[in-house]
């Protein structure tokens, strides 16, 4: 019983992180219909940026935890956003009118570039950040107990705040309206005077910022990372996006949480060696059974 509850708690935090990253996939897919393979590696870059920002902040004598986390968040989100912009500008914009295959290959190329660039700059070894926030709530259930670290509580709080802010931006602001219009019909939107290139760029920036948020939170919680983490994380977040229905924002969040919960339960109850296998198999199954996902609209083929 306590194992199930513990895994549910872990799964919820993990799922909210998947959801944050899935947002980047789903928004980009919604707006230009491509899978941004480099997105997982953008997340990986943000993990490095988190560690760098913490190292810099402590070097300059910032000691208090709130300042460090605030500084790390701002620094990482801004620079990761810049990465998103640059990636779109360099690897995707020149291919706006090319075949889908070309864009996909370019995206894979970008993913390789990011991985190897980080590996060459920072070395192949695992890196880490010091534990900044320790301690936990404990709830006793029967004989055992369920432990929720303060860090996990913070992840949930910040992740859901991030999602709420994003929902507000998409639903209420002018930028969000332009995004939604471009998503519906790019040509029409540009005829109506929307600079669709700018909108697409901003979607990449927003998606990367969300991945950065996830990167900061996971890095602070987990501590260790290397240049390869983006790969697995990317596939899982993509699974979450597909599960929720690709192109749908609430779907990405929901898909992330469902994936996180089921993966944690699988790891806790069946086997933790095969938990990645479980997630990938889930992806294949969803695509076979319900390719439009939970909240997505079934695509009508244009003949």
């Amino acid at each position: 019983m306590d194992i199930v509850l513990q895994q549910l708690v872990n799964g919820l935090t993990l799922g909210s992180v998947y959801g944050l990253i899935a947002i980047g996939y789903t928004m980009v897919y919604g707006i230009i219909g491509m899978i941004n393979f480099a997105h997982g590696d953008v997340y990986m870059v943000s993990a490095y940026l988190t560690a760098i920002s913490i190292a810099l902040l402590t070097f300059f004598g910032v000691q208090s935890f709130p300042f460090i986390i605030f500084g790390a968040l701002v620094f990482t989100i801004v620079i990761t956003g810049a990465y998103g912009w640059v990636i779109e500008r360099v690897a995707y914009r020149p291919l706006r009118n090319s075949s889908r295959l070309s864009v996909l290959i370019s995206a894979i190329g970008m993913s390789l570039i990011l991985q190897n660039y980080v590996q060459l700059s920072q070395g192949p070894n695992q890196q880490g950040v010091p534990t900044l926030l320790s301690g936990a709530f404990r709830f006793y259930v029967g004989d055992g107990f369920v432990q929720i670290t303060y860090m996990k509580v913070m992840i949930l709080l910040i992740a859901f705040t991030g999602m709420a802010v994003l929902t507000y931006i998409i639903q209420k602001t002018k930028l969000g309206r332009m995004c939604r219009a471009t998503q519906q019909d790019r040509k029409m939107a540009s005829i109506l005077g929307i600079d669709t290139d700018k909108v697409i760029s901003s979607v990449f920036v927003i998606g990367s910022a969300m991945a950065a948020l996830a990167g900061v939170l996971v890095t602070l919680d987990y501590g260790a990372f290397d240049f390869y983490i983006g790969f697995i994380m990317g596939i899982k977040a993509f699974t979450a996006a597909v599960l929720g229905g690709i192109g749908s924002l609430p779907g990405a969040m929901l898909g992330g949480i469902i994936l996180g919960l089921s993966e944690s339960l699988f790891a806790g109850l069946v086997s933790s060696d095969y938990k990645d296998v479980f997630s990938f198999s889930l992806l294949v199954l969803i695509l076979i059974i319900r390719p439009s996902g939970l909240l997505g609209k079934p695509a009508v083929e244009k003949v």
Binding site: I35, I232, D273, V284
Partner: peptide, 28 residues
Amino acid sequence: FPVLRMHGDYLAIVTLGFGEIIRLVLTN
């Protein structure tokens, strides 16, 4: 067979996952 009837882009990510599954199974 199940995957090829779907939209082309999904194939890329499913095969990516498949390659990883094979490696993980071989490792574990």
